[in-house]
Amino acid sequence: MRVLRAAFEPIGRSTLALLEYLGGLALLLWDGVWWMVVGPLRGKGRIRREESFFQMRRLGIDSLGIVALVIFFVGVILAFQMAYVLKTLGVTEYVANITGVAMTREMAPLLVAMVMTGFSGAAITAEIGTMVVSEEVLALETSALNPVRFLVVPRVLASMVIMPFVSLVATYIGIAGGFFVGNALLGIEAEKYLSRTLDSLKYKDIFTGLVKAEAFGVLVALIACHEGFHVTGGAEGVGRATTNAVVRSIVAIIVCDALFTAFFYYFL
C-alpha cells in the first residue's frame, strides 16, 4: 500500500498542479477576451489603444531584426540538410519545394514564437512581476482599474495582431535563406528555384502557418502575463517567474505545435 502510494502520489500531485495551471491560464484568457470584447461593448472600459500600439512595436517590430537573422540561417541549414539527402537521389532542385513548404507551414511560426518567448515573453513577465512587487498592480486594482484590461489586453492583443505579420515576414526571409544556398551554392537556377517554391505552396499551407502563428502569439503573451501576476517574494521572485515564463512557453508552444500539425495533416 505504502509503495503504491509513494509511486502514485507524485503523479497525482503534478497532474493536479498542471490542471490548476491550465485552469489559471484559461481563466486569464477568458478574462482577457471579456475585456477585449464584452467590456468595451458594455462601456465598462475601453481598450487602451495607444498602449496596444506601443506593445505591438515592442513585441513585433523591435524583434524583427533578430527574427530575420535567425530565420535566414534556419533557411540556410534547412536547404543544406535537404540537399544532403536529395543529392543522393539526384533531385537536388527539390530543395526549393521542401524549404518553401517547411518554412511556411512550420519553421517560420515556430521560430518566431521561440524568439518572441525570449525576446518579449520574458520582458512582459519581468515588467508585470515588478509591478506586482512594487504594489503597482494593487494600486491599479484599488483605483478601480482592472489589471487584466490594463495590462493583459494590450499585450495579448498586440501579440495576436503582430505575430502573423512577423511570421509572414519570417517566411519570406527563411525562403530567401534557402534560395541563397540553392542558387548560389548548389547551382539551382533562380527562376527554377522560385517557380518550384511557388508551385509547391498551396493557400492552405500559408493559412495553417498563420493559424499557428496566431495561437503561439496568444500563448506567449498569456503565459508571460500569468507568470508575472503570480510573482511572490521580491526581486528573486521576478527572476524565477521570468525563467518559468520562458520554459513554460517553450513547452506549451511545442505541444501546441504538435497538436496543430497532426490536426492539419489529417483534416486539411
Partner: peptide, 14 residues
C-alpha cells in the same frame, strides 16, 4: 474604490 484613495508605502507610481 473611486471614493477612497491610498498612498502606498513606496508610492507605487506607474
Amino acid at each position: 474604490r473611486k471614493r477612497f484613495g491610498i498612498l502606498f508605502q513606496s508610492g507605487a507610481l506607474y
